[in-house]
């Protein structure tokens, strides 16, 4: 029976630099997939949170009632999500400043908006966490794979230099071994690129809905403060 070249054999018998490159890429792949799944859960939960909170907010419920519901939930150790955090920060600051008698209306609005801005940037930070890592993996792993290939081909040519007769059977395994590194690099890079682009679009989507909500909420507060 002739012994064919199988990918497993190639990887096991590859030279040390190529094996190191492959190990690095495997590690990067696993870590990036952990990020992919974790981000997926975070972003889908944030999207759902936006929808459900907007539904509750525009259902005509009283704002202080909504705030109390949130406090009740926090007491039950359920942390508030995304948009609700912004609402709570703004409303809390608004109520506190309003109780002080010497405050003028513009100063109260300023304070509430500042509190919402802070909460907004905190939420954005949470959403964008790990996305730069995915971007790095996407661009770098191709180069790492290419590096492995170049090293492998270089080694094979150094080996060929000492041989008088070079046949396809001599070259082929080394080249194949080297090419596995590039394949692995692409295998890591492609999902990372796709997912990075997709997730950054989703994050943009969510943050823009936060911004819209902040504007709408501050206009409501503005109406409330000028009505009395």
């Amino acid at each position: 029976m002739n012994e064919g070249i199988t990918p497993t054999l190639l990887i096991l018998e590859a030279s040390l630099p190529v094996q190191l490159v492959l190990l690095t890429l495997l590690g990067l792949s696993i870590v990036s997939w952990v990020m992919i799944f974790q981000r997926w859960m975070v972003l889908s939960a944030a999207l759902k949170g936006v929808l459900s909170f907007e539904h509750r907010f525009w259902s005509g419920m009283d704002l202080s009632q909504l705030y109390k519901e949130g406090s009740q939930m926090q007491k039950e150790a359920i942390p508030a999500v995304g948009m609700e955090n912004i609402f709570r920060a703004g409303f809390k600051e608004f109520m506190r400043l309003r109780q002080q008698p010497s405050m003028d209306k513009e100063a109260i609005m300023e304070g509430a908006q500042r509190a919402m801005r802070v909460a907004y940037s905190r939420e954005e930070e949470k959403l964008e966490k790990h996305l730069p890592f995915l971007a790095t993996v996407a661009s770098v792993s191709v180069y790492i794979g290419l590096f492995g290939t170049v090293i492998g081909i270089m080694n094979s040519f150094i080996g060929l230099a000492s041989q008088a007769q070079v046949t396809m059977q001599v070259i082929a395994p080394d080249i194949a071994e080297a090419l596995i590194a590039t394949a692995m690099g692409l295998f890591v890079a492609i999902p990372a690129v796709v997912v990075y682009n997709r997730y950054s679009a989703t994050v943009d989507n969510i943050t823009s809905s936060y911004v819209t909500f902040t504007d709408e909420f501050s206009s409501i507060l503005h109406r409330q403060i000028h009505s009395d």
Partner: peptide, 23 residues
């Protein structure tokens, strides 16, 4: 929302398991 809230800002162990399984 309860499930979402539990999972939302962590969920690393679950992700790790899923990624390793995937590979």
């Amino acid at each position: 929302d309860t499930f979402n809230n539990v999972v939302i800002y962590n969920g690393y162990p679950l992700s790790l398991v899923v990624a390793v399984t995937f590979h």
